[in-house]
């Protein structure tokens, strides 16, 4: 067992974990953060995407012990005072989800992408989410949603999620 201390969605946690425990398991099974899901065992699907110290990662390919001392942001930590993050809102507005299983990972990766590139072209969005698989939407409305969110986030602050200080208020434009 290893002792880890993490900040997840703004709250501090301390736990003993087996070294083999994956970050996604820790989030789901120990913290009850079941909004983040597991879709594969080869890091292809991206459903488990969260932000670790401000960068998107596949939480199935990070050990919980590796998150010791880090800040984690999940889809459950995006809302601010009951307001959806602009990317969440855009997913709803543009019908960018059907079954919703890939959605948490898609949203987290899309926020990361917009932090990096606030005004992506269609092709840049497609490449920016190429690590996230969706089986329902054909991606078209997801691409639309990300571009829509980019427009809505423009007037405000940059969607800076690449600095850990910004977590858990990723996006900031809300």
């Amino acid at each position: 067992m290893a002792r880890i201390r993490t900040t997840v969605d703004g709250l501090v946690y301390e736990d003993d974990v087996e070294p083999r425990m994956l970050l996604v398991q820790y989030l789901r099974e120990r913290l009850g953060k079941t909004g983040t899901v597991i879709g594969c065992d080869t890091s292809n699907c991206g459903a488990c995407t969260v932000h670790l110290d401000g960068l998107s990662v596949k939480s199935c390919s990070v050990l919980a012990v590796q998150a010791n001392g880090s800040e984690v942001l999940t889809v459950e930590g995006l809302e601010r005072d009951g307001q959806l993050h602009p990317v969440q809102q855009a997913f709803h507005d543009n019908h960018a989800l059907q079954c919703g299983y890939c959605t948490p990972g898609m949203i987290m990766q899309s926020i990361d992408l917009l932090g990096d590139n606030p005004d992506p072209s269609e092709q840049e969005v497609r490449e920016g989410i190429e690590g996230n698989l969706c089986r329902c939407t054909g991606y078209q409305n997801i691409v639309r949603a990300v571009q829509d969110a980019a427009q809505k986030m423009k007037p405000g602050a940059h969607a800076s999620t690449s600095s850990s200080a910004a977590a858990p208020v990723a996006g900031g434009g809300a």
Partner: peptide, 9 residues
């Protein structure tokens, strides 16, 4: 190489 998430790690 792979995708954004993988390149971050």
């Amino acid at each position: 190489v792979a995708d954004f998430q993988v390149r971050h790690r």
